[in-house]
Amino acid sequence: MGAWFSENGLLVGLAALDGLSYAAAVFMVAVGLNLVFGVLRVLNIAHGSLYAIGGYSAASLGLFLSSRGLPEFLAYPALVVAAALVGALLGPPIERLLLRRMQDHEPVLQLLVTFALFMILEDLQKLLWGVQPVVSDAPVRLLGTVDIPFGADVIPFNAYQLYVLPGIALATLVGLAWFLRKTLAGRMIVAVTTDREAARAMGIDAAKVTLLTFTAGAALAALGGALASPTVSLVPGVGAQTIVLSFAVVATAGLGQIEGAAIAALLIGLGRSFAVYLEPELEVVIPYVIMLAVLLVRPQGLFGVAETRRI
């Protein structure tokens, strides 16, 4: 064990740091997916495409700003602005024009509408941004690296992935938990999630709550993509990859769990990045193996609540 660790300790440290930043991005997507599922009762397959479009938009905006010779630090607000734009421009029309019309349809049709949307958005990305990798790493470059002492070694790790990504994810987690529990708007979302009809009877405008929640969820996915964009090169298919990963996070955590999603994202993010460093063959498998193992033991997910039907 000791010998193994001194040989691989550095890798383990790197994997942990990588996994943390990866988990942060995945959490942003999964938590939005969960919120939207709560009010609409449909897992939005196109949610991963919003992540990808958020990433592409942020990269394009960053590259555009620097091409105009504007100060480089503007790359940071650009990330947030791009995400907000994607959420605001795509969220409301998707909810209004598609999902709302489907509300009384069979669940499989609701699901398939989001699959159709996914197919459309995947090709739109290719048409807009091409199939070559898009890279905009200014936000990572500007902050430089931090030397993390690790035993006898020092790991240079970029500050962006160390502080910014996990920091924003943590702020989102805390902010969202506070918002849902303490504010009137948050309570309304919870009410619609728990019992749509009862919420309506209490005078809550369920349609409006749904629209706003969907838009917020879309913006969170886009923000996840925007924040991750400086650390990866964007290629077609990233949306398809992201959505199945967020499915795994949501199912592992249990439907509707916000804090649970954070823990599941950490579990899956760390698991995946340990695999990347130690057993690369298993990289893609690990998240699903974690999910399968969890559901085998707890069919409703780690934090989900088992329902008994009244008969």
Binding site: L43, P107, L111, V244, F247, A248, A251, L255, P280, E281, L282, E283, V284, V285, Y288, V289, M291, L292, L295, P299, Q300
Partner: peptide, 22 residues
């Protein structure tokens, strides 16, 4: 329902990655 769908999805993705990686 969702868990049925997700488990099937997860298993097919496990198979996919085994095919891809080995």
């Amino acid at each position: 329902e969702i868990f049925f769908g997700m488990l099937n999805l997860a298993l097919s993705m496990v198979f996919y990655s085994l095919l891809e990686k080995f």
